[in-house]
Design a protein around this nucleic acid. Structure first.
Lengths: 215, 215
DNA sequence: TGTACATCAGTGAACGCGCGTTCACTGATGTAC
DNA sequence: TGTACATCAGTGAACGCGCGTTCACTGATGTAC
């Protein structure tokens, strides 16, 4: 997210154009990678899409790998912000049912074809490199920290309590990843979407107990 | 699996060498794709790995895409056979617990780094092409048909019954896919493996009911 | 606010390599008798 | 079983294109006065 360069007292000189160019390259990369696949994408394609010559690319990045990582981190962060924003508004219902909360969370998480392709390839790519693997793991954790509190609130309102936060967290992420593919593979199929919600509710219930259970 | 050519009365002439060459190319492709990623792999790399010149490739396949599909189908089928074989031997215990059955099924399903990368990229790739998307969907269904009977047997032995086979099937596939990544991202972590088994058991239980429930 | 100057960001041409793709050819593999 | 012949499978050289990467350059953007 933040740049890793040593921070000067004032922002560096001639920064506006640079930032715009960089951003246009990042956006072009997302499009091209989604369409062609990361491995099939070329510096030339990304630059053409962004409306630059290849020199501009080398003035901003050292390799496609670096661009891929930067783009993925930016988009991931943006997606998380979106989810947070969508979930921040808790005025929806005073004591929502668990079902309603799950629906709300699922609506806030976009299941998007292009982004799925990018993330799937990034994960596969990351598994070849320990540093990148940690980046993926950290992102999963961040997703958890965003979603868990909301789910816990809903459980509390329903008089239930989470037994093992970590286990529930892992389970939710796994279910999200696994069902997202299914939704994409059968786009029109509403049964799949409903099965997804049901699975979430089931697991949240199984990984929590009523206060009376605990006596 | 089976060739789509019109079947001649006898097998075609000079078939032995051809089949071996083809197989060596398929095996080399699996290695190279796993190491480099599908998109980054070249005809040259695959041929070098297999010990052939590029001409041999064009004598057997028309494109890397075709080779990728053929390799993926062969490996998928082989993996399914392996699972079937491992599960066929039901002498293990007369009335196994559900937990034991889940453990057995999970042990039979290899969670393998290289294969995960290949499948993740294939799925991403397939989502760009309706025909390939159907191939992926069909494979998921085949996995289901292999696993569900075993799970149902164990449930029956435990005096339980599946309410909705399709829903349970989808849930199991989703959980498998989702947790497989987690196992790979944190290879040493045994908590992850156990969480995986627990999630399976939980879901199987939630999607079935005891015979007394039904009265 | 205006001008002269310094520095930076992106241009576009150039180079060369790796690889996809083709094809005439040779040695391997099968068939017929 | 052996030999002559036909066909097939893989070889290896050749061609050319696309692209990665570099770099001298120019016009854009900022600074100083």
């Amino acid at each position: 997210m933040t740049e890793l360069t040593t921070a000067p007292s004032r922002p560096e000189r001639v920064t506006r154009r640079r930032a715009e160019t960089r951003q246009r390259l990042l956006d072009a990369a997302a499009d091209v990678f989604a369409e062609e696949g990361f491995g099939r994408s070329t510096v030339e394609q990304v630059c053409e899409r962004a409306g630059f010559t290849r020199g501009a690319f080398y003035s901003n990045f050292t390799s496609l790998d670096e661009l891929f990582l930067a783009m993925w981190e930016q988009r991931s962060a943006r997606m998380l912000d979106g989810i947070r924003a969508a979930l921040a508004d808790r005025t929806a219902a005073p004591t929502p049912t668990l079902e309603a909360t799950v629906e709300r969370v699922l609506d806030a998480i976009p299941v998007d074809d292009a982004w799925y392709r990018i993330t799937a390839e990034f994960t596969a790519h990351a598994l070849r490199n320990p540093a990148l693997t940690r980046v993926v793991a950290a992102r999963e954790e961040a997703i958890l920290h965003t979603i868990l509190p909301i789910v816990e609130d809903a459980l509390t309102a329903a008089g239930r309590r989470v037994d093992d936060r970590e286990a529930l967290g892992r389970a939710l992420v796994a279910i999200h990843d696994g069902t997202a593919v299914q939704v994409l593979v059968e786009p029109g199929n509403d049964t799949v979407r409903r099965a997804r919600a049901r699975l979430f509710v089931t697991v949240v219930n199984s990984y929590s107990s009523t206060d009376t259970d605990r006596r």
